[in-house]
């Protein structure tokens, strides 16, 4: 994609989407746009549909039997659910980082090189691995043990490694499903600093249960309840002066 895209341009847009698991409607008639180089936080109580929505953004829900998704998911003007779109390609454009760090049981180096290699990366693989690890601020901690098992790293280091693995395939958008919920406060702070850095290049959509984190890291926040997008707006407004009383009740901990 063109490097010169302006920050306000839409990176991904969902239009009138319902998401079903069998007969259960998990997301109802949702429309929203995610903008380039912005961090959007999806918040809401457990079961509100935010993780379902997140997984629909790169067709991860295709892997769950009985899932039905309607509406449009427009990425670069194309519906990613069109029959001629390869879901594997979608997941290259739109990467995902999970709640629990899940490095492959391989070396640190191989974890980052893996995606690029199976995609037939033509450039300097070594350089790609190094820059990806540097970009997630992990380099100083692992530079002397690149060929040691990734699983020997701490949880926070593993999560940064997973982010490095995700960005090594050069996605446009990075989805994050509660990326710090399994981490201690120091590792969490490192990931949050990293988000600030990554948003210079990527569009980030993050699901979080941590209200303070949503307030700290995101540019926009979306509050979902029972599958409905109740309120979506600038984070400052959502946390300081939400328009919807349900949003206010949730973010101030009165329910959820």
């Amino acid at each position: 994609m063109n490097e010169a895209v302006i920050a306000t341009e839409v990176a991904l847009e969902v239009k009138n989407s319902d998401i079903f698991y069998g007969d259960f409607k998990a997301v109802l008639n949702l429309s929203m746009a995610y903008h380039h180089r912005e961090i959007t936080a999806l918040i809401g109580p457990s079961g509100c549909g935010k993780s379902t929505l997140l997984r629909s953004l790169n067709r991860m829900n295709d892997l769950i039997p009985g899932t039905k998704i309607t509406g449009e998911y427009l990425f670069q003007g194309k519906n990613i659910y069109d029959s001629d779109v390869d879901p594997v390609q979608v997941r290259r454009w739109i990467g995902m980082v999970f709640q629990k760090p899940n490095p492959f049981p391989k070396t640190i180096y191989e974890n980052v090189a893996w995606g690029a290699r199976i995609n037939g990366y033509q450039g300097d693989l070594e350089e790609l691995v190094v820059t990806s690890i540097q970009r997630v601020a992990l380099w100083d901690e692992v530079k002397d043990k690149l060929h040691k098992p990734a699983l020997a790293l701490s949880g926070g280091q593993q999560q940064r490694l997973c982010i490095a693995r995700t960005i090594a395939v050069k996605p446009e958008i990075v989805l994050m499903d509660e990326p710090t919920s399994a981490l201690d406060p120091i590792s969490t702070a490192k990931i949050e600093d990293l988000l600030d850095e990554l948003k210079k290049t990527y569009t980030i959509i993050i699901v979080t249960h941590n209200m303070q984190q949503a307030g700290r890291v995101s540019d926009k926040a979306a509050f979902m309840l029972n599958g409905v997008l109740e309120e979506f707006g600038p984070t400052d407004q959502i946390f300081f002066n939400p328009k919807n009383p349900k949003t206010e009740a949730y973010i101030s901990g009165r329910f959820g």
């Binding site: 209200m211 303070q212 307030g215 946390f239 300081f240 002066n241 206010e248 973010i251 101030s252």
Partner: peptide, 9 residues
């Protein structure tokens, strides 16, 4: 307590 919205105000 990290109050937000009207509680914070």
């Amino acid at each position: 307590e990290q109050p937000v919205a009207s509680d914070l105000r």
